[in-house]
Design a protein around this nucleic acid. Structure first.
Lengths: 349, 349
DNA sequence: TATATATTTGTGTTCGAGCACACTTTTTTT
DNA sequence: AAAAAAAGTGTGCTCGAACACAAATATATA
């Protein structure tokens, strides 16, 4: 179990050569005779040589510059936990020469994204972790990074680009299914449900669709058929939202459960008529206003996308890649956490 | 932001002394004049000196022996994920000289625990991570470790001993509350519920009680009062369990929701009469048989105690303590994950 | 004042990997 | 066969912290 730790010097002795030659074999630097090469390779395999990462790291003594490009939590509180996750990772890896800096952009402005991403590139980083909110702009960005061999990881949103090494996030389709399962449990027998997309901007469009698909998928798999209405509320003003909700309820008085595909479920809860208690609500994200609604019973379940962990993992993966040559996982799908009024505290940390 | 990394040599130059003197100040080895001490201390503070952990680790070049003492997954599948967690941590930290070995004991036998814990001690480890299933025996164990300055961490179960540095687990009372909240949501208006303790051995007694307390606590906080029955099934044989369940249902035909405080909810599900669908079931732990019951709809919710993560963190905390002098957190309470048929896959990893 | 003793300070080596450079051996060219 | 080029090999220094030991300085004793 506890196998001996071999050093390059050990191997050199075993092979009857000098450590320089062993080093050349390990790093494929060539200039090694066939005979020596074979002998050393064989020994390396036999003892399953693992280089001492500590010594390697010390010798290289390089500092890596890792930049993070995410939406500004001031503009959307959903992103606030990301900063904590980044900080945690930053503290862990600065001892290994990974220097981390964060750049914030306005999630409602492609212009802001472009400006900040340019700044990031001007810094000539070794790696970038970012949230590709805007599809086209993100593609341009990843392409540039590929060309300048800047290692990339994305989280929260995915883009179909093979220029980015790693994606960390959630299976949105499945999370829609989870929401379906929850509403189904809350409302056995009830057959009228609704999917509500609440978002003043439309960059979330693909996400919301994916969630809706999963939701419908769940009910399609059931024997009993359900009526599922889709309703969009692309407003920001609370009065307009109220109006939209009122209209929605009047048109479909039989709807008893609603799945809100964004973090704005609290807006729906607030906009419901005081007297109305027949609506069961499932939404996303542990932002403060949603938690208040959990406590007051206006929202039944929230799905946690764990932005903190997403950011933490994104930064960690790249840091471990730089510091220890660790492989970066292609895809990391986080669990779909189900949150109620009783268990949310532990997810806030 | 990116502050310069100072080395001991840098500080020595700044203070006009040699690196030996700086070293003595840093490690409080004494034999330093008051004047030099003051000067160096001041500089250390000013630049917020952080030693290069990589270099320190390399120099020490020590291997630490970390042993893990947990129940045998062969005897109870609940513990199987722990081995994965331990392996993951082991791979991560062996590069830093932390050698990890696992010892398994029979969770139904104090004798087995004693025998294995003796073996552990015979190995003279630097640290031990263990599950203190048996109270008295665990206290003796921790005491011995304290005396021989073996660093300890516990997970899953806690013992009130200040000889153990760290506990990783769940707030059982809260998890009972969560179960209460879930059953309440599933059964609005229904007022008859039951807590069932299923366990052939009684070492879990305190855990089960704690969970029941939380469960009752939740319903005590509601306006509408509920009838909650407690039922114990200390059997192992499936026929005896069937009989016990039948008796229970006959005595309390109005019960519509059951909270099973152990990982044996599947036994209850199996023992229910085929025709009976009125019982909503909430249990614990993602063991295979429970998952099958989730899929078939016989169990509605499971609470995940995340044994994998518990073991992983236990090992990681001690490893980081040994390798990097990192402080060990006293208490780490993991989130109370709510599991349905739709989201369990992501928790299995 | 000279010598012994205690206190303080400096120097040099080590950990393992990486890499530059010097050195040796083999092969090619004239 | 001698010289030049190429291929292969070995040596020694570096990264930063830790620590043993030597050296220098200060204080106490005869």
């Amino acid at each position: 179990m506890l196998k001996k730790k071999y050093t390059i010097a050990d191997i050199a002795t075993m092979a009857g050569v000098s450590k320089g030659t062993v080093d050349r074999v390990i790093h494929k630097r060539g200039k090694v005779s066939k005979k020596a090469h074979e002998k050393i390779t064989k020994i390396l395999k036999e003892i399953d040589y693992q280089p001492n990462l500590v010594a390697r790291n010390l010798k290289k003594n390089k500092t890596y510059r890792l930049l993070v490009l995410i939406p500004d939590p001031e503009k959307d509180p959903y992103w606030a936990p990301c900063l904590e996750g980044i900080n945690t990772a930053s503290q862990e890896f600065q001892a290994f020469g990974v220097m981390i800096e964060t750049f914030l952009f306005d999630p409602s402005s492609t212009r802001s994204f472009n400006a900040r991403s340019k700044e990031v590139l001007k810094n000539k980083p070794d790696g970038v972790v970012f949230v590709p909110l805007f599809y086209k702009e993100s593609l341009t960005f990843t392409e540039y990074c590929k060309k300048n061999s800047i290692t990339l990881a994305t989280f929260n949103s995915s883009i179909n680009s093979n220029n980015a090494r790693s994606f960390i996030g959630q299976d949105l389709h499945k999370s829609g299914r989870v929401a379906g399962g929850l509403l189904h449990m809350l409302l056995p027998g009830k057959k009228h449900l609704a999917v509500v997309h609440m978002d003043e901007i439309y960059q979330n469009a693909i996400h919301m669709q994916e969630k809706e698909k999963g939701f419908r998928d769940y009910f399609d798999g059931l024997e009993q058929k359900h009526q599922i209405i889709t309703h969009k509320i692309p407003e920001k003003d609370i009065r307009k939202i109220r109006k939209s909700v009122r209209g929605f309820l009047e048109t479909y008085p039989e709807v008893s459960g609603v799945f809100v595909t964004t973090s704005k479920a609290y807006l729906l809860a607030e906009a419901l008529p005081e007297t109305d208690t027949r609506i069961r609500l499932v939404g996303y994200d542990l932002i403060e206003k949603n938690l208040e609604c959990l406590d007051s019973g206006h929202i039944d379940f929230l799905i946690h996308q764990n932005p903190r962990q997403q950011a933490y993992l994104g930064v960690s993966y790249l840091s471990e890649y730089f510091a220890f040559d660790k492989k970066i996982p292609d895809n990391k799908l986080l669990p779909i956490d189900i949150i109620t009024a009783e268990n949310y505290t532990h997810y806030l940390e």
